[in-house]
């Protein structure tokens, strides 16, 4: 996958997440801004009561975020495949493989882990990268 495709997919996250009623309901207790990085390009993702309010593409200069997940465009592309290969099928699998990093305040991530995992995997379910 070319890098701009990964950027376009991240930009479509609000549309994918907000159309999924069960996912929004699961995240109803979460309001935070987290960072998703594709290579060196950072996206600030604003979650308000389970809905993705906005996605801002960096550069981000003086911005706060709770937690960050970082991986290369190639890794995200593999992660979003409809049938991902072993190691690319889960955020923590990618982390153990050494192709993803998780940083910052992990409490919102851990307390809402299924929600965040499902947000990150929304492009896979929508088959955007297949």
């Amino acid at each position: 996958m070319r890098t701009p495709d990964a950027h376009a997919i991240v930009a479509r996250l609000p549309e994918l997440v907000n159309a999924d009623g069960a996912l929004v309901r699961r995240g109803a207790r979460l309001t935070t801004s987290f960072l998703l990085a594709v290579d060196d390009v950072e996206f600030l993702i604003h979650v308000v009561a389970g809905r993705l309010h906005a996605v801002e593409q960096g550069p981000l200069l003086l911005r706060s975020w709770s937690f960050a997940v970082r991986a290369t465009a190639e890794s995200w592309a593999r992660f979003w495949q409809p049938l991902p290969a072993p190691g690319y099928h889960d955020l923590f699998a990618m982390k153990k493989l050494g192709v993803a990093r998780v940083e910052g305040d992990l409490w919102p991530l851990m307390a809402h882990l299924r929600y965040v995992k499902d947000v990150l995997a929304a492009p896979r379910r929508a088959r955007l990268a297949g």
Partner: peptide, 20 residues
Amino acid sequence: PDVHGGELCSALMSGLIAPQ
């Protein structure tokens, strides 16, 4: 007390299941 253990254990383990 500030993280639901069952929800977290379940969400962590979900990644160990094959996509098939």
